[in-house]
Amino acid sequence: MRDRKDQNESGSGFSRRDFLKGSSAAAAATAMATSATESPAQQSQSQGNVASAEARDVTLSINGQQHTLSLEPRVTLLDALRNDLNLTGAKDVCDTTTCGACTVLIDGKATYACARFAVECEGAEIQTVESLRNGSEVDEVIEGFVEHDAMQCGFCTPGFVMATRAFLNENPNASLEDIQKGLGGNICRCGTYHGITQCALQIAQKGGACSWLNERLVGDLVAKTA
């Protein structure tokens, strides 16, 4: 787990989270010194299709906006979103590609953000749960979660919302059984599955139409919330 703390400091972004962790600058400096002594050979290599182990500029397209961050290859998309961009909707829960709380859409496909390195996502369109809100308006999946009381502690909710959104985009007329199978990649420890599946079913019965919010990626929102 210490490694991940080190990673948190890998980016260039300045955020509330970085500020709160003022003491971690020393940890970052140690990590850099260690990697410099351990792998001198790796530093020089950055040619063709190979990127060295050191941090470099990585440009990510998130919710319609381009962000350039200085990241090591080992930084996951989840850590980059949460620690460098302060997009904390995707949650860090199991960290073993199992629970779905970190689900984001990459080129429209539901993906565990903890199963991707940020560098892998260059050139792809990333959509986080933050894109499903614009001012006071929210995506119908979020409305449906509220209507069907589909959350208790709420920690799994952003991931579940994204998985539901992705599932309904591809399966607009899904049956209850389809929904239960499709959303099996998300876990809710409070056990709110009934509300979630009812929400998805209701939207599917209306034809699963994509809401305007989902269709167009809300770029300026990120600037406002970052």
Binding site: D3, R4, Q7, S35, S39, Q42, Q45, N49, V50, A51, S52, A53, E72, P73, R74, F117, V119
Partner: peptide
């Protein structure tokens, strides 16, 4: 996680 290089080949040979 230890650090590593990241390579993105375009062909099988590469």
């Amino acid at each position: 996680m230890r650090s590593f290089e990241y390579a993105r080949p375009q062909t099988e040979a590469e």
